[in-house]
Each structure stands twice: as structure tokens, then as C-alpha cells.
């Protein structure tokens, strides 16, 4: 297996998406549109939280969904994930996956606790004053 090809430099030609980005860079429109979307979503969240403040299920579901959309908008457009290559996702996805695994595996011990929680809490007897040795 003799090596004749050019060395694999860490430099690659631009993807079509990057060329498109360069063309788009002239216009601010996408960024301002995204900003507008983020603002609208924030107001939506505010109103939604107010409206559903007593219904935990829909509250959590709706708000987390909106937050996820906002976070993805910032990531996709502002952090230019839209134009990035695979390697960025190879860095990000394991981190996100591990974040999910860690949080999910914490649930059985803290959220789905086994001991009956409505058991009356017994007052601990007051410990005697320390004996003077």
C-alpha cells in the first residue's frame, strides 16, 4: 500500500451550503428574521406559562418544546450549524446523547423513588447534649 496521493490536509473545499452562505452573507434578512422568531417565541412562552400555570403536564411539555425550538434556532442560524460539516455534529451529538443518558439514569433514583413518600415523617428524637469527657 504505497502512498502516492496528496497528503490529507485538514483543508477541504467548500460545501455547496458554504458557498450559499457566502452568497447570503450580504443580506441581514435571515438573522433579523430569526431574531424576530425568537422574540415571538419568547412572548409565546410568557403567555403560555401564564395560561397553563396550574396544569403541570401541558406547561412542561409546551414550554420545553418552545425552548427546544428557540435553542435550535440559535444553534442552527446564529452558531452557523447550518453551514457546518459533519465533524461539528460528531462533537456535539455525543455530548447531547450523554447529557440525555445522565439525566435519564438519574430519574429512577430521585424522581421515581421507591419508598412511600406520604409516610409521616418521624421527628428525630433530640440528641442528648454532648457528654463532657
Amino acid at each position: 500500500m504505497t502512498e502516492t496521493a496528496e497528503p490529507t490536509l485538514p483543508v477541504a473545499p467548500p460545501t455547496p451550503a458554504m458557498a450559499e452562505a457566502a452568497a447570503q452573507a450580504e443580506a441581514h434578512a435571515p438573522y433579523l428574521k430569526v431574531l424576530f422568531g425568537l422574540m415571538v417565541l419568547t412572548i409565546l412562552e410568557y403567555g403560555y406559562a401564564r395560561f397553563f400555570k396550574d396544569a403541570t403536564g401541558p406547561l412542561v411539555f409546551g414550554l420545553v418544546l418552545m425552548a427546544a425550538v428557540k435553542a435550535s434556532l440559535v444553534g442552527w442560524y446564529f452558531m452557523h450549524l447550518k453551514f457546518e460539516r459533519l465533524w461539528v455534529f460528531l462533537v456535539l451529538l455525543p455530548a447531547c446523547l450523554l447529557a440525555l443518558i445522565l439525566t435519564a439514569l438519574l430519574f429512577p433514583d430521585f424522581v421515581m423513588r421507591q419508598e412511600p413518600l406520604d409516610e409521616p415523617v418521624r421527628q428525630a428524637p433530640r440528641a442528648p447534649a454532648p457528654a463532657t469527657a
Partner: peptide, 21 residues
């Protein structure tokens, strides 16, 4: 190695369902 940490905690009062995993 990322998904085995609970084997240090079998005796800690961890949820037994996690123990088997």
C-alpha cells in the same frame, strides 16, 4: 465506560432496576 457507573453503587440504596441495567 460511560454507561456503567452505577456498578459502584449497588450497595448504596440505588433503585434495583438500575442495578440490573
Amino acid at each position: 465506560g460511560f454507561i456503567v457507573w452505577g456498578h459502584h453503587m449497588f450497595q448504596s440504596g440505588m433503585n434495583p432496576a438500575l442495578g440490573a441495567t
